[in-house]
Design a protein around this nucleic acid. Structure first.
Lengths: 179, 179
DNA sequence: ACACCTATGTATAAAGT
DNA sequence: TACTTTATACATAGGTG
């Protein structure tokens, strides 16, 4: 789609690269919107631009409310099972990563987060005392979920390392098909 | 791009719709890959096909390892703060959603998940006793993260309701820009 | 659904402003 | 740097198997 055919490889020139990026991103998002509208499909796009921060696009967002509706109609049993699963994997998480916080850092964190934080933190630390019980068994359960809801959504600016955590969620909670 | 210009609106005929979907999805993924390669960009695509299960695509996946490397080079302080934050928001989560499990369901869940599960579950239930302390303060902290890593990734099959949770993460952890 | 076909609409590379 | 132009490559609508 241009006067010349271009080779599919990294554009070295940074100027040319960012120019091409904005052109192609525009076309790409248009395609996404067309696909979403024509085929009544939900699409979420996460794009890391080379220069600016990464963006999440949610074209055709009217569908999200439908998904949310479905979720809120979830049965008691489904909700309960979801919770169980979440708590269980949370424990697996603690088993792997909980660490002690030195006293001199407690004030710092308390100020930043919440004064009651360490009341809970110490309770959670207690869980570690028994965590060895689960050693091998827990390894298959590195999964978790979040209960919060989304009311509406379109585009979110995110940071790179957060992506990794999100991808991890996709992978660990939902299973993998290699493409 | 076709013999006729088509109107940008939902294709009613289901047969035609799914045909168009697979054609356009293919082109769309190709565009994503081109953009990723040409501009050295990370792109993640989540597509709900009208018929089959939704898929997550991660074209040009060599970049993920770079992100992971960056993450693994995170400093001790950064890792610690991330953990604190995670635990804190986990408590917020428990505050909102923890529920009692009736005895007759314990066997069922124990069988499905793990025999030691309720040892932990009951400990977590204890946290609820003090949760009222946090009431208003906690409301701004409906955020969470996951510590697990992804080694490689390409395409994941996921379920619709899980998406909502993931989007929730994007929104709540990372801030929102309406598109 | 999937592969191929051809005409045609679209996206875009390169150049101009 | 960004917008416009224009030629061209590409994607895809409609069709058939």
């Amino acid at each position: 789609m241009g006067r010349k055919k271009i080779e599919l490889k990294l554009i070295e020139c940074p100027k040319e690269k960012s120019s091409k990026f904005s052109k192609r991103k525009k076309g790409f998002l248009k395609k996404a919107e067309e696909l979403a509208i024509l085929c009544d499909t939900d699409i979420v796009l996460l794009v890391f631009s080379p220069t600016s921060k990464p963006n999440l696009f949610y074209p055709h967002s009217r569908h999200l409310s439908r998904i949310l509706e479905k979720l809120s109609n979830m049965s008691e049993d489904e909700r309960e099972e979801r919770l169980i699963f979440r708590v269980f994997t949370l424990v697996a998480h603690l088993k792997k990563e909980t660490i002690e916080i030195p006293n001199e850092k407690r004030n710092y964190y308390s100020g930043r987060y919440n004064h009651d934080f360490f009341y809970y933190y110490d309770k959670i630390i207690e869980l570690r005392e028994a965590r060895e019980l689960l050693d091998e068994k827990i390894s298959i359960l590195r999964k978790w979920q979040d209960p919060d809801r989304v009311d509406d959504l379109a585009r979110l600016t995110i940071m790179e390392d957060h992506l990794v955590f999100n991808l991890s969620l996709f992978k660990n909670v939902l299973g993998v098909n290699i493409k």
